[in-house]
Structure formats: C-alpha cells, structure tokens
Design a protein around this nucleic acid. Structure first.
Length: 284
DNA sequence: AAGATCGTCAACCGCCATTAA
DNA sequence: ATTAATGGCGGTTGACGATCT
C-alpha cells in the first residue's frame, strides 16, 4: 500500500502534510465508508471523505462505493443476455460506458468497460481488425449476436421445460430475456453454415461457424427483454431490427467481405467466455 | 520448479460539464 | 459573468492470480 501527498486539484489543505492513501481498499476502510454513507447519504464526496476520517479523496470514495460497495452492485459472470445487450448497445452508443451501464441493472460502467476491453477487443485483435470498424460490427451482428440469441433461447427452453409455471409474459425480472422469435417457442433453425472455418490451437480441431441470415433477423418481432418498465429495452431491439442499412445487407455480402479479408482462416482462441465452439456449437 | 506471459479487474488519472459562491 | 469546487466519464495502469513454457 502506498500513499501520496495531496498535491493537485483539491481544496484548502492541499498544502498540508496530510498523506492520502491509494491502492486497494482495506476492510476497515470499506466499513468506515459504508457507515459514513449510511449516516450522511451519497454525494458530497469530498465532505464525506473528510467526515469519515478516511485518508482518501472524495473521488476515490465515490468510485469505491459505486463500483464495489453499493448494495445493488452485481458481481460475477456476465450472462449471455447481458453480453448481447452490451454488444447491441455498444454498436449504438459507442464507448459511452455509463450510458450502456444504465441499461444493465447492477452492472457498473467500469465493469462493462473492462468486459469490452478484455473480451470483445481481444477477439478483434485475433481477427486483426479494428474493434470499432464496420467489419467488426458485422461480425458482432451476424455471428455473435445470433449465437448468443440461440444460447439464450436454449437456456430459456431448458428452464421453461423444468418449470410448468414459466410464463414469459408475466415475467418482471430484469434481463430475463425471451427469444426474438415471438411466433414460436422453438429455437431458431440452425443457421446455414458459413465458410468461416475456424480452428483451434494446433489445428487439430476444426469448427464451422454459422450465422443467422438477414431474413431470419427480419422475422424478429418482439424485444427479447421482459423488463416492462424499460422503454428502451422494449424498443431498442425493434429499432435495431428496423435498421435498414444493417439488416438489409445480405449476408452474402458479408461473406464476401470475410473472404476478402482472410477471416476464413481466423484462428479462434479457446476462451471460456468467447469460445466459439462452446458458444456456437457447430462442429464439422 | 521457476520464470515468463497472459488475463482480469480494481483503482487512478486527466479532462470536461455542471454547480455554487 | 467569473471562478473554484465538485462530480462524472472514459482511458489507462498496475497488481495479482492463472496458465504456459
């Protein structure tokens, strides 16, 4: 644990010899902060830092509270539903992490940002393309999201078959998605194989990667999200689906693009979250 | 077994917008 | 109207555990 002299950007006292702590928070510090917030509430972070007796900046206290200590902060694996939301929202909003986080209850902008950088951008690096490029957007749209949808659908089917009381219409739980396919409870048909022959590691194990066709996408009629309180979640998928420029673009065009860019030889990494075999489950 | 490399994530930094004096 | 304080955001760093060589 290190400390540093308060030197910039702060109010009176910056000339004092007071040392501020930095680095990981201790249990004692967390307890102090929680106690102080329970007494005085959130906000006025500099004042709060002073009152608490913590040798931390107000900013540091705010960050610790919002990203870690706040009771509704959700931790742990990001579900396929959440992954899909992040992908969709990022395609619409770009790197506006806080805006994206607003639509994922319990997730912080920091967590989403980390997720994007460590998981999503990694895939872009493997593909040797810019994560912000149109090409990568297409990969997300035509490969990852359809696969995530299918995964969600399968999960949802499993859970519904194990629960006779399952009623998607009445669900009010946030981020409890239902399939895009409102007219059918069955999973979408297996996407047509696309000539994207990924292979892992030594090349001993090959997999063919498929994607949902644009016509399948056009069949989407309802939001996959059951959070009836969120206008955005109800509408954004519809808006996305209605995006002429994206969804009327024939997959064959993308296939051509993929071939032209040599993505057909993409060596997919064996990653737990983004393991293509695990996620897309199409093996030859 | 040990060092190197990689992946994850908490925390910090700097900038900008807003608010209060 | 101006200025300083504050809060919020996105980019980046660094510690640390896991995995690889």
């Amino acid at each position: 644990m290190s400390s540093y002299r308060k030197s910039t950007g702060t109010s009176a006292g910056s000339d004092s010899d007071e040392l501020l702590r930095r680095g990981p928070w201790t249990l004692e510090e967390d307890t102090l902060l929680i106690h102080c917030i329970s007494r005085h509430g959130e906000g006025r972070w500099n004042l709060l830092a002073e009152r608490s007796g913590l040798k931390r900046t107000g900013k540091s206290c705010r960050l610790r509270w919002l990203n870690y200590l706040k009771p509704d902060v959700k931790r742990g694996n990001i579900s396929p539903q959440e992954q899909m939301l992040i992908l969709e929202l990022h395609s619409m909003l770009g790197n506006r992490w806080s805006k994206i986080a607003q639509h994922l209850p319990g997730r912080t902008d920091n967590e989403i940002k980390n997720y994007w950088r460590t998981r999503v951008q990694k895939q872009a690096r493997h593909l040797k393309i810019d994560a912000n490029s149109t090409a990568f957007q297409h990969i997300i749209r035509y490969f990852w999201i359809p696969r995530l949808l299918q995964k969600i659908n399968e999960t949802s089917s499993l859970s519904s078959s194990s629960s006779a009381l399952h009623d998607s219409q009445n669900s009010t739980v946030d981020l409890n998605p239902q399939p895009y396919y409102s007219t059918s409870s069955s999973p979408p048909p297996a996407p047509p194989p696309l000539k994207l022959a990924g292979y892992q590691g030594s090349g001993s194990e090959h997999s063919t990667i498929s994607c949902m066709s644009s016509s399948e996408f056009s069949g989407c009629q309802t939001s996959p999200f059951q959070n009836q309180n969120s206008t955005f979640q109800k509408d954004f998928c519809l808006e996305t689906m209605a995006n002429q420029g994206d969804f009327n673009n024939p997959v064959s065009d993308f296939r051509l693009e993929a071939e032209n860019n040599n993505w057909v030889e993409y060596d997919f990494p064996a990653d737990s979250m983004w393991n293509i075999d695990e996620l897309w489950q199409f093996k030859t």
